[in-house]
Design a protein around this nucleic acid. Sequence first.
DNA 1: CGAAAATTTGACGACTCTCAAGTCGAGTGG
DNA 2: CCACTCGACTTGAGAGTCGTCAAATTTTCG
Lengths: 263, 263
Amino acid sequence: MARGDDHKIDLRDYPLTGRFLAGRMRTHMNAAEKATMESLIVETRDLEANQRIVHTGKLCNVSTMLIEGFMIRSLESEQGRHATSMHVPGDFVDLHCYALKRLDHNVDTLGPVKLGFVPHEAITRVMNEQPHLARLFWFSTLLDAAIHREWIMKLEQLTVPRRMAHIFAELQYRLVLVGIGQGDRLETPLTQSDLGDICGCSVVHANRAVAQLRSEGLADFQRGTVTIPSLPALHKYASFVPDYLYGPGKLSLSPDDLAGKTP
Amino acid sequence: MARGDDHKIDLRDYPLTGRFLAGRMRTHMNAAEKATMESLIVETRDLEANQRIVHTGKLCNVSTMLIEGFMIRSLESEQGRHATSMHVPGDFVDLHCYALKRLDHNVDTLGPVKLGFVPHEAITRVMNEQPHLARLFWFSTLLDAAIHREWIMKLEQLTVPRRMAHIFAELQYRLVLVGIGQGDRLETPLTQSDLGDICGCSVVHANRAVAQLRSEGLADFQRGTVTIPSLPALHKYASFVPDYLYGPGKLSLSPDDLAGKTP
DNA sequence: CGAAAATTTGACGACTCTCAAGTCGAGTGG
DNA sequence: CCACTCGACTTGAGAGTCGTCAAATTTTCG
């Protein structure tokens, strides 16, 4: 069955959590686990743009599934906001709060979003009774860490225009993984000021980077909508290699791996 | 009981894993869990400097506890090595490999080290039978993610000399947490070239940063040994606030938190 | 329409890069 | 013991990237 069909079926049967780990380990979840997952969400809520759902240092007893929309994870300093990563639908955005209890950062909505809330007692039940699902939860938090590592490398390695190209490429790829993305287009609620926070540069420089990507025909950013004339060209410019996202590819688990064979 | 005493006792009773989560959630481990932890290590090995124990993309079925010495986690590009973080004794350096199976990065020894190996079947047993210990394992991998996030912010926020000061401050703090560190001194196997890989700059610039920290009396780096005239001054210069390391402080769990009280 | 937010442009200075050359220190062979 | 060698460290010069300040323009929305 084609991946696209999987998406459609999972979204029909599991409208709240059908995108969780889509394109990654979701194929390792059986129907019972998918049903458990869906039942964990005790409440959904629609929020406007620029709402904070996780505050640095605040105790939390609920974790949040991003069902629709975009969110941003950031740290704050005297110099303003520093984004560490973005979130797309299907991300269990503050699952790690279950183990950490107080988070070191903030999580904000970017545009309007639809969220699902999971109480930590429910996660404890999963830990006690469903170790395989618990392991998938663990996996999903480690994915964030892998994305952090890649971004550290990109910050050390790339100029701002290339970093920005990398952000566009990553977002496009992640949206495709969860069945939303298109090949040549990307709709986000981002402003150029957000891009500056994400790329670790000033708004002014973010603007120049946008202009440069535009003039070189690599990506056209207009009020949040990114048009990509050539995805391969963008990938090359940004040195984007999606392995670290653990989609289908070099790092994903093969059936042989699961059988415990050592190569 | 003072923390120092805890350290001594745990190291006597658990010589291989007595530093695991020391200064953090180790106080939440009971004696049975500490004993389980110690028994997970089926083999120890001493390695020389510059050995690779985790290779990008290679399937792994064993995770590694760093018992003595230092390790570095890095990604490689055409431009060379990019460090994402360092490890000190007590770190379960590639525990996340249990859930990810193939890692996106490399882990290398810096100087000589002593390592302990834990087969993944043993971790599966913990997942199935000891959910509380499993949660502590999860916590320890999330600690790495928190350190990554802080580093992302520092890369976006600080100049190279300040980043380097931050590295020194973080290392000193983490060593104290696991009972090794001193207040004004730090012995590492790092070269200035390593510092460049860590701070995301060229060797030449790393050298200038070392020289600047020296001339300003903030830290004196000589063949791996760092002397710190004034820890508060170093912290201030680097905007170092250790909360993100989840030691005793703002983000650590209080007894009230555990009782499930919502403030 | 008018106000606020977002985007754009210019000028100048600071940070960091590369290239190139030179110095210092520890170990090695004669 | 000394000369040699190799890696680590140091220094200088010129160029590119990026920040800040300041101001203008465009878009959004009430």
